[in-house]
Simulated scan of single mutants.
Amino acid sequence: MSATIQREPRTQDVPEQAPAGPRRRRPFRGHLDAGLYLTMLAAILVMAVPLIWMFMASYKQQGELYSLPLQWLPEAFQWANYEQVASSIPIGRMFLNSVAITLIGAGLKVFLGLCCAYAVVFVDVPFRKAVFVVVLFALLIPGQITIIPNYTLIASLGWLNTYQGILVPGLASAFGTFLFRQHFMSLPASVLEAAEMDGAGHWRRLWRFVVPMSVPTIAAVGLVSLVNEWNEYLWPMLVTDNPRTMTLPVGLTLLQSIDGMQNWGVLMAATVIVTTPMLVIFLILQRRLVAGLTAGAVTG
């Protein structure tokens, strides 16, 4: 009688793994991060230092601006320069002119850009691709080329020294139409098809479906239009020489001709009034701008 011996299966010895510890950063990676931070800090200084100097100079007296070595802080914060700006030019009227022209001009640019881009993308009209090509070519044409024809037209209509003379020639926005069109190409077609089946017309589809899905792009186009309208200088300077219809950038030129080039404290005070509103708006809406430009970068 033979006995059978059962052998236990051998288990292979598995080496124990050491617990995973924190990964060591490579020295090259650390140097790269430090270099990027230094570059970002240098860029911030390049942009911020002139703004800080402008703000501080607006409170300085004439002698403090030319003192050596340079002193950043004024000896006493005084409003004399701002008071001289208000007494030299109608700065309040010019501020209201800039606000009204900027809001109306930027609003009309966004509205017209939305309607044009919607028609190019969603309305089945002949030659709509050719229209988009014309829009692209309009982006390549410098605005200075159209100044003489526009001025001749505005003068023949009797619109010199008027608000409509400043507004109307710049209402067409090829940039806004292009950005809206690129974003509309990325929208889900099923939503608009369902709205069409429910009986929604083009106008309702635009404002009830397309616009709510395009808020970041609208904010980006609106912000760019606001900044461009507020800072517009060449065209308002050509069509108006009346201080009651001038905008703030043109008012700076009027102030410079009145007080002369040497009164830099007064000019810096006026420059602070011109730049502060758009600087605050840009800092508040900069995330919307980045999100809108990224959404509009989708090609169709």
Rank of each mutant, 00 (worst) to 15 (best):
A117N: 00
I91T: 08
T11D: 07
M268P: 00
L223I: 15
F184P: 00
P74K: 09
M47C: 15
K60C: 08
R205I: 04
R7G: 14
Q71A: 14
F137Q: 02
V210H: 06
F111K: 01
T247M: 15
V266Q: 03
R287F: 04
G260F: 11
P27S: 12
P149D: 06
P169Y: 00
P142H: 08
A80Q: 13
V133L: 12
I145A: 07
N150A: 11
G201L: 05
I52A: 14
L192W: 06
S2H: 15
M54P: 04
F55E: 07
Q182H: 11
L171G: 08
I273G: 05
N231R: 10
Q61W: 06
Q286G: 07
D13R: 12
Q164P: 04
I147L: 15
A130F: 08
M56S: 14
G251E: 00
T299Y: 06
A80K: 09
L206E: 03
L32Q: 07
N150Q: 13
P216V: 10
L226K: 02
F28G: 15
A119V: 04
F28S: 15
I89F: 02
R29A: 14
L70A: 15
T102W: 00
W79I: 13
A3C: 12
T146H: 06
P50I: 14
S225G: 09
C115A: 12
Q144Y: 08
L70V: 15
G199S: 01
L38N: 05
S67G: 12
E75P: 09
L108K: 04
V120Y: 00
E75Q: 13
L51Q: 13
A174L: 01
R181F: 11
M40W: 12
S88R: 05
L103Q: 03
V250I: 15
G21V: 06
S186V: 06
R204Q: 12
A86G: 09
L38M: 11
L289M: 11
S87N: 05
L248A: 05
T162N: 14
L70Q: 13
R26E: 09
L32K: 07
P149K: 07
P149R: 05
A297E: 01
V110T: 00
I148S: 03
Q17A: 13
Q12A: 15
L238D: 02
A3E: 14
A155Y: 09
M1K: 14
L248W: 02
V133D: 00
H31C: 12
L153H: 02
M237A: 15
G165D: 01
S58F: 08
W230F: 08
G170E: 00
A295F: 00
A174C: 09
L68R: 10
S214Q: 13
Y163T: 09
L65R: 12
N161M: 05
I145L: 11
Q78F: 04
A43S: 11
A291R: 03
A34T: 10
L279H: 03
S98L: 06
A269P: 00
A291S: 08
K109H: 03
G35Y: 02
L96W: 02
T275H: 09
L114D: 00
F111P: 00
E196I: 07
M40D: 01
R93T: 07
Y118I: 04
R7M: 13
A119R: 03
